[in-house]
């Protein structure tokens, strides 16, 4: 009935070690928890070495140093992260952070405006004025448009919520609540799915009661 594969047994034991927390906190769980953190970090370190540093830095440098030596510049900037652990020079870590922030901010502004603002606004307006969508289609388009505006008005804190703004913000809250309810409904499925995955493993691969 039970699996004969020792690796499956190890996987089952590790699963049960984590599940044991449901009864109460215990040393079996704590060991598994610490092992998980360590293994995850070690795993990610090896992946970063094998899949990023070796092909993108070391290989080009060893293959043709004359042509690829400029790669040493980002490598040296990246190495400044180490100074986080040298208190006297810890300010040097601000340089790679600054490069990352400058690039990240600069490169993201235009696409973010395009994706999250312009495209969304275009779509909201197009939907609310799409007569060819038919009666209900147009009605839902207009409702969505009202929903967007009222939701935005709820987040408008520069003025006190009274008068028309209060009415609009109140409607916005209702839309937000429907949205949060929808997220909740989906979250239930998501969390349950994760449990199902583990139970399927225990019943299928370990105990063999499901085939």
């Amino acid at each position: 009935m039970f699996s004969h594969d020792p690796w499956v047994w190890i996987a089952a034991i590790m699963t049960l070690a984590i599940f044991s927390f449901l009864y109460k906190e215990n040393w079996f769980y704590r060991i598994a928890e610490h092992l998980f953190v360590g293994m995850s970090a070690g795993y990610a370190m090896a992946r970063a070495w094998n899949n990023a540093l070796v092909p993108n830095l070391f290989n080009p440098l060893f293959a043709d140093f004359g042509r690829n030596w400029p790669l040493l510049i980002p490598a040296l900037i990246g190495l400044l992260y180490i100074f986080r652990f040298v208190p006297k020079f810890s300010h040097l870590i601000l340089i790679p952070i600054a490069v990352g922030l400058g690039l990240g901010s600069g490169l993201s502004i235009a696409p973010t405006i395009q994706t999250d603002i312009i495209k969304q606004m275009q779509s909201a307006i197009a939907d609310a004025s799409n007569v060819s969508a038919g009666g209900w289609g147009l009605a839902w388009g207009i409702l969505s448009f009202i929903g967007v505006l009222t939701t935005l008005s709820y987040f408008f804190f520069s003025r006190e919520h009274k008068g028309a703004l209060k009415v609009s913000a109140s409607i916005g809250i209702w839309f937000l609540m429907v949205g949060f309810g929808a997220s909740f409904g989906n979250t239930v499925m998501g969390r349950v799915s994760l449990l199902i995955g583990r139970v399927q493993f225990l019943l299928t691969d370990w105990i063999h009661v499901i085939r």
Partner: peptide
């Protein structure tokens, strides 16, 4: 067989 089951169970 060690890391993935623990990660999965943690969220389960």
């Amino acid at each position: 067989f060690v890391q993935a089951p623990m990660d999965s169970a943690m969220f389960a």
